[in-house]
Design a binder for these strands. Structure first.
Lengths: 162, 162
DNA sequence: CATACTGTTCAGCGTTGACTAAACACCCCA
DNA sequence: TGGGGTGTTTAGTCAACGCTGAACAGTATG
């Protein structure tokens, strides 16, 4: 009743699709995210398909993708039929956690090659060390950010409308 | 003479291709990056094509991509013929700068919709505010990281080989 | 037990994008 | 003024992916 037929909401959902598309994720995943961002109550599987005018197959794959990323949680009420979806508790910190995990593997690659690389390649060693240093700093920075998001200082939530 | 015919180097170049591919960038871009990471001297355009066994067209497009990202710089010596490529000065901080710029536009989207959204959608307002807060924190964190990388404390460069 | 509805899976289509090879414009040197 | 080099651009091929629609198994309800 709220977001339906609201041009601002429609545009936002569309733009969220573009944003996720620019990040290499399916467009529909972003649209689901945008819809759940706006809607006050959890949405059912069928409602997602209807509101976004996409197939149930797309809803299935993309909801499971968003679940695996940790930004969306699925509720399956025992008595009621059908699954319901809403944003997770701390969606953005979970997103960052996934990013750091992927970066850990990249970091492991450069450290492994640096360990097995011939020592006479001094320039390569220095450059790989710099890259490893970057990974370490980035991971440290992101991890503190995650903690900051999970344990927010109460006055940090700014509510002013511009 | 160094990286050529070295199995460790070959494997690293291949893995760098996989890493960039996972981030949505072409595989060859990562291979060029890996090669420049290992080589002590700047490499010519032709050498890149030969060493990676790819077409000159791919070298052209991907070197320009890496240039636009700020991680690779092109040298065109006046007397000598041909372009040469090497890693940029502070490659990783420039990379982060590009990321923050893209994120600024996403942040602008959520702030714009929040400003024009009907006020009775209180839940949506709160969630968009939380998302904007996330963007703000992420941008702050990344910006301080950029400064940290550009002005490193001297003892921060760790050289121990594991 | 049958029926209706759930969410998942899979073949098919359309599109996108990486990559190649060839044509191209440019420059330096003979 | 050619001729062999440069890097860029273009058409074309191929694989990967998003998305659909239908077939599928599972479950609760009549």
């Amino acid at each position: 009743m709220h977001t339906l037929h609201n041009p601002v909401a429609q545009q936002f959902i569309e733009q969220m699709g573009h944003i996720t598309q620019a990040d290499g994720l399916p467009r529909i995943a972003g649209q689901i995210l945008g819809l759940l961002l706006l809607e006050s109550e959890p949405l059912s599987f069928a409602q997602l398909a209807i509101r976004l005018k996409v197939s149930r197959g797309s809803v299935s794959t993309n909801t499971r993708l968003l679940e695996s990323l940790g930004v969306v949680t699925r509720s399956t009420p025992p008595n009621q039929r059908g699954d319901f979806f809403r944003l997770s508790e701390a969606p953005y910190s979970k997103l960052l956690t996934g990013i750091t995990e992927r970066m850990e593997t990249s970091k492991a690659v450069v450290e492994a090659t640096r360990a097995t690389l011939p020592q006479e390649m001094t320039a390569a060693h220095a450059r790989l060390a710099e890259l490893g240093h970057f990974y370490r700093c980035y991971l440290d920075s992101t991890r503190t950010l995650i903690q900051q998001l999970e344990h927010p200082r109460p006055e940090a939530t700014d509510e002013r409308s511009k």
